[in-house]
Design a protein around this nucleic acid. Structure first.
Lengths: 130, 130
DNA sequence: CCTTGCCTTGACGCTGACGACAAGGTTTAG
DNA sequence: CTAAACCTTGTCGTCAGCGTCAAGGCAAGG
């Protein structure tokens, strides 16, 4: 399987696949003419990467999952290193949820205040020119 | 008040103040030697900008608030344009909270699955060299 | 031979809010 | 005279995950 086919089957671009390779996440063979050749296993790897990135992981975060898949496991998250990353990410998400909740609260308060004190002196809506 | 003093009083850097000016958020006078001269009102403006950026606003978002302050209001959020931005941001935050909640749920599920299926074939922990 | 359609390796662009220089002018204090 | 401590404009770097050319090689069909 060449890079174009893998890209299409994985729902991504050739640029992306080369990018992953440059960052050590994928290791294709090379045919005589220098073309990258991938096997079926790489398709699953790429899909795993995409799925994790979609959830907010960084490339560094997905490495353990890729290694886990490549070690022959059915899914990439059953290895210790993967679990560590999962825990850390979960904590990060929880933390971010808290802060975002606080922001939401502040926005709500501010909006309430703004509506209560409206009808004051306000800038004109673009008086023709700047 | 020169740029250095304003920066210190506002808890930011001169670079930041020049950046805001380049993006049309602050309009200092110029003294004979070309130095930027700010009045007290600009201090409040800069603090408003900083507060909003901290909450996740972009520079474009804060423009209405600055204009509102400059129009002579006690706070920057009492003008119609500001209220619009506040509503939009609140909606964005709510939306993001939803998606982040879904991600959290997925992470939790995945973590549970990973722990249930652990103890399988996993990559060695860096066998000395790479 | 030519075109089409793959593939290759660079290398710059993008988004946002600045940080970190560079190279120089000004004013004040000693 | 000179150093210190301000100020000026200008330009490049940062972080991430690619998009988007550019310039060229290779293979196959007509």
């Amino acid at each position: 399987m060449l890079i174009g086919e893998l890209a299409e089957r994985a729902g991504t671009s050739t640029r992306t696949l080369r990018y992953y390779e440059a960052h050590g996440l994928v290791h294709p063979q090379r045919s005589a003419n220098g073309y990258r050749v991938y096997d079926e296993a790489e398709l699953r790897v790429v899909r795993e990467i995409r799925a994790l990135l979609d959830v907010g992981f960084g490339l560094d975060d997905v490495r353990p999952f890729v290694a886990c898949l490549r070690a022959g496991n059915a899914s990439g998250d059953v290895c210790p290193d993967s679990v560590l990353v999962l825990r850390r990410k979960l904590a990060e998400v929880d933390d971010y949820l808290d802060r975002l909740g606080a922001v939401r609260q502040q926005l709500h308060t501010q909006l309430t205040h703004a509506i209560a004190h409206r009808e004051e002196t306000c800038p004109r809506k673009r008086p023709s020119a700047l």
